[in-house]
Amino acid sequence: AALGPRTRMIVVNSPHNPGAVVWTRAEMERLAALLAPTDTLLVSDEVYEHMVFDGAPHVSAASIPELAARAFVVSSFGKTYHVTGWKVGTVAAPAALTAEFRKVHQFNVFTVNTPMQHGLARYMADARPYLELPAFYQRKRDLFRAGLARTPLVALPSQGSYFQVVDYSAVSALPEAEFCQWLTREAGVAAIPLAAFYAGGFEQRLARLCFAKRDETLAAALERLQRLQRLQ
Rank of each mutant, 00 (worst) to 15 (best):
R8V: 12
A220L: 04
A99W: 07
A1D: 14
V91I: 04
S169P: 02
L41M: 11
G201K: 00
V83P: 12
T90Q: 07
P193Q: 05
L3A: 06
T217F: 09
S44P: 10
I10L: 08
Q232L: 11
K140M: 11
A177N: 07
W86T: 13
H58T: 01
E176Y: 07
L183R: 06
L31I: 03
V12F: 02
K87F: 05
M9A: 15
Y48A: 15
F53I: 01
R8S: 13
T217Q: 14
A127P: 15
T151M: 09
E216G: 01
P5H: 11
T98E: 13
F107R: 11
A221M: 10
A127T: 13
Q226W: 00
L183E: 03
P115F: 06
R205H: 13
V171W: 00
A36P: 10
E216V: 12
N108P: 03
P193A: 00
R145M: 12
E29D: 08
T7M: 10
R150L: 11
W182H: 10
R102T: 08
R70I: 10
R205Y: 04
S60L: 03
A170P: 01
Q204M: 14
L67Y: 04
Y162F: 12
Y123K: 15
P152F: 05
Y130V: 09
T38N: 04
G188S: 00
A56I: 01
H50I: 01
A199M: 11
P5L: 10
G147S: 03
W23G: 12
G188K: 00
S60P: 06
A149C: 09
P175H: 01
E178G: 02
